[in-house]
Computed example of a mutant assay.
Amino acid sequence: MKICVISFDFWNYDAHIVEELRRKGVDAHHINIGAYQHKDLSARVKNTISKIVLQRNLKNELRQEMILDTLKKLGPQDQILVINPELIDMEFHHQIKQCTKRYIAYLYDSLARCPAQHLFSEFDEIFTFDKKDALDHHFKLITNYNYLPEQKSPVQPKYDLVYLGSFDNRISLLSTISAQMEKLNLSYNFVVVGKKSWTKNISFQNQNTILYKRQRVKHEDIPDFYLQGNIVLDLVRDNQTGLSFRIFEAMALKKKIITNNPTIKDYDFYNPENVFILNEEASNIEKSFFDGSYQEIPAEIYEKYTLSSWVETIFSLDL
Rank of each mutant, 00 (worst) to 15 (best):
S7R: 02
F10T: 15
H16N: 15
E19I: 00
K24D: 04
A28T: 05
I33A: 07
A43T: 13
K46A: 11
I52E: 05
V53E: 11
L54A: 14
L62E: 15
R63G: 00
D69V: 11
D69Y: 08
T70L: 07
L71Q: 06
L71E: 01
G75S: 03
Q77F: 08
I80W: 00
E86F: 09
I88K: 11
E91F: 02
H94W: 11
K97P: 06
Y106K: 13
Y106T: 08
R113A: 12
E125S: 10
I126T: 09
F127T: 05
D133N: 12
D133E: 09
H137S: 11
F139L: 10
N146E: 00
L148C: 05
P149Y: 13
P154G: 08
Q156A: 13
Q156G: 01
P157H: 03
P157V: 05
P157S: 08
Y159M: 00
L164V: 09
G165K: 09
R170H: 07
T176A: 09
N185Y: 10
N189Y: 14
G194N: 03
K200T: 13
N201D: 13
N201L: 12
F204I: 15
Q207W: 06
Y212T: 02
R214Q: 15
V217P: 02
P223M: 03
N230K: 15
N230H: 13
N230Y: 04
L235V: 08
R237M: 09
Q240A: 10
G242E: 10
I247Y: 14
E249G: 03
A250Q: 07
M251R: 12
K255E: 01
K256A: 03
I257D: 02
D266T: 10
Y267D: 08
N271S: 13
L278K: 04
L278D: 11
N279P: 12
N279F: 09
A282Y: 06
K287D: 00
F289I: 05
G292F: 03
Y302S: 00
K304S: 04
K304R: 15
Y305N: 10
S309P: 06
V311I: 13
S316A: 11
S316G: 07
